[in-house]
Computed example of a mutant assay.
Amino acid sequence: MRDFFKSKEALLYVMSIAMLFSFSAWMSLLNNFVVEVASFNGSQIGILQSLREVPGFLAFTVVLVLYLIAQQRLAYLSMILLGLGTLLTGYFPNAIGLYITTVIMSIGFHYLETLNQSLSLQWLPKNRAPIILGRITAVKSFTGLLVFVLIFAMMKYWDVPYKNVYLFFGGITVVIGIVCWIFFEHFKDDVVQEKKLSLRKEYWLFYVLTLFAGARRQIFVVFAGFLLVEKFGVDIENMVLLLFVNAVLNIYFAPKIGKFIHKFGEYLTLRLEYLGLVIVFTAYAFVDNIYIAFGLYILDHLLFSMSLALKTYFQKIANPKDISTASAVSFTINHIAAVFLPFVLGLIWLYSNSLVFIIGALIALCSLTLSFLIPRNPVQGYETTLKKREIVP
Rank of each mutant, 00 (worst) to 15 (best):
I96P: 10
N127A: 13
T114R: 03
T282A: 15
N377Q: 14
A309Q: 00
Q49P: 09
P125G: 10
F281L: 04
F168N: 08
A337V: 01
A224S: 15
R135K: 09
M105D: 00
A247Y: 01
V191S: 12
N41Q: 06
S371N: 07
G346R: 10
V392E: 02
A215C: 05
T86K: 02
Q122T: 08
A25M: 11
V240R: 11
L29N: 14
G97N: 02
L275H: 09
L243W: 00
I261E: 01
V339M: 11
Y207H: 10
L167H: 01
V229T: 06
V208K: 02
I391A: 02
N32Y: 01
G170M: 01
T101D: 04
M79T: 14
A59K: 08
M79D: 06
L373C: 15
L197T: 04
F152R: 14
G346L: 10
T385S: 09
G258P: 05
F109D: 00
Y91P: 09
M155H: 12
V179Q: 07
K188Y: 00
F304Y: 15
L88C: 08
E53F: 13
N246M: 12
S106D: 03
F244G: 07
L303W: 00
P393C: 00
S330Q: 06
L302C: 09
F5N: 11
D3N: 15
Y291P: 10
F340K: 00
L30W: 05
F244Y: 09
L51T: 08
F212K: 03
I298Y: 06
V229D: 05
A361Q: 03
V208F: 09
Q49A: 11
F152Q: 14
Y67K: 15
V280C: 03
A293V: 02
Q72F: 04
V14N: 01
H262C: 04
C180L: 11
T102D: 06
N377L: 13
V234N: 03
A254T: 00
S305C: 12
E230V: 14
F331L: 06
Y291T: 04
I374G: 12
L355A: 13
A285K: 02
G46C: 09
F264Y: 12
F340H: 00
G360T: 04
L119D: 06
V344I: 13
L197M: 07
T86M: 06
L270G: 06
V245L: 14
F232T: 05
V179L: 15
V379Q: 13
G90A: 04
V34N: 12
T385C: 03
H186K: 15
A328K: 03
P255V: 00
T369Y: 13
Y157N: 13
I100C: 11
V392N: 04
F187R: 01
S198T: 14
H110C: 13
R200I: 11
L228C: 11
Y313L: 15
L249E: 12
V392H: 08
G42V: 10
V329E: 03
K126H: 01
F40L: 09
Y267D: 14
V34K: 07
L205H: 06
A153Q: 15
M154C: 07
L87V: 09
L310M: 11
F23H: 03
F152G: 09
F184I: 02
G295Q: 03
V287R: 02
E113W: 11
L345Q: 02
P320S: 03
I251F: 14
F281D: 06
L66E: 12
A95R: 14
Q193F: 04
A224L: 12
G346C: 05
